[in-house]
């Protein structure tokens, strides 16, 4: 089989060539440099940096907080998607448009804004402080920042899937005496599950690497509130290029696994849909 199916349209060579060249120069070559740099660094140093107590604490924080944030998003993102798809209320369209806000808003802006709201003298912080709840400069603040940036991924994945749920099936099930939760569990959830899983993984992947919105609200204490991307920046500021590259390599591997998972989940979702239509 030939590399390319024949077509009468021109321009494949030009556009494909430019695409691969630009992709190679801007994305692939620099990423290769990261891998090679890690491989060229003294292995004892790599292991020392990657498994240092500080690095391990940062993985635990980055992963734990991201997992929690993605889980919160899975629950509330689903509720919001449901509200937007199933109910009509004043301002629905504006709310719908605003869901993409965390996606368009610079991370530094959401970082300082969240910190201002949740600091001890902020709009919400001042009411939580008397109860001994501190959000800014603790891990809770990190979870909140990561929840904000992950929200659009879950809502935008679930929305189209919810719209595809066959309402006739729901009506039929209810007519035949099925309860609300039975309909939800047996008809709605199976249709939406792949999309929900995709959104969850996207939000999680985005959260693990997030930097800008977190560092303002995190407090950034080593071993306590220091995320992995910040540790990379610190290694770089110490001119420990090898150590920074090693930590970056670990995160890059994680990104690859995430990307693979997302692709598999999307393929699962497509298979489900095709199966439903038959």
């Amino acid at each position: 089989m030939a590399f390319r199916q024949p077509s009468i349209l021109p321009g494949f060579g030009l556009t494909f060539g430019f695409t691969t060249f630009f992709l190679g120069a801007i994305v692939l070559l620099p990423l290769t440099a990261l891998v090679v740099r890690t491989a060229m660094t003294d292995w004892n140093h790599v292991l020392e940096v990657v498994f240092s107590a500080r690095a391990l604490a940062s993985y635990r924080l980055s992963f734990g907080a991201s997992l929690l944030a993605a889980s919160i998003n899975a629950v509330f993102g689903f509720i919001i998607a449901w509200t937007l798809v199933r109910y009509d209320f004043p301002g629905r369209k504006i709310i719908d448009a605003l869901i993409d806000m965390p996606f368009a808003l610079p991370t530094a802006v959401s970082g300082i804004a969240l910190t201002a709201v949740f600091a001890h003298n902020g709009w919400f912080g001042q009411y939580l402080e008397p109860f001994g709840i501190k959000i800014a400069y603790t891990w809770i603040g990190i979870v909140i920042a990561l929840t904000l940036i992950g929200l659009p991924f879950v809502v935008r994945s679930v929305q189209p899937a919810l719209a595809e749920v066959q309402r006739d099936l729901e009506d039929a099930a209810e007519t035949l005496g099925a309860g609300r939760f039975y309909v939800f569990r047996r008809i709605i959830l199976p249709t939406v599950l792949p999309a929900l899983a995709t959104g969850f993984t996207m939000a999680f992947a985005r959260a693990v690497g997030e930097y800008g919105s977190v560092i303002f609200i995190a407090g950034n204490l080593p071993l306590k509130t220091e995320i992995t991307p910040l540790l990379i920046v610190i290694r770089l500021e110490e001119f420990d290029y090898g150590g920074a590259a090693a930590l970056g390599f670990v995160m890059l591997l994680i990104s690859f696994v995430m990307l693979l998972t997302i692709n598999l989940l999307q393929a699962w979702g497509r298979r489900r849909l095709v199966g439903d239509r038959r």
């Binding site: 990261l34 991370t107 985005r206 770089l236 970056g248 995160m251 890059l252 990307l259």
Partner: peptide, 23 residues
């Protein structure tokens, strides 16, 4: 190819800067 084009979205912004410092 599409996956490779999407790659920068999955990569931490800190790594996006780091790779150019390494180069």
């Amino acid at each position: 190819l599409i996956t490779l084009i999407d790659l920068p979205i999955a990569v931490s912004p800190v790594i996006s800067g780091l790779v150019y410092v390494l180069l």
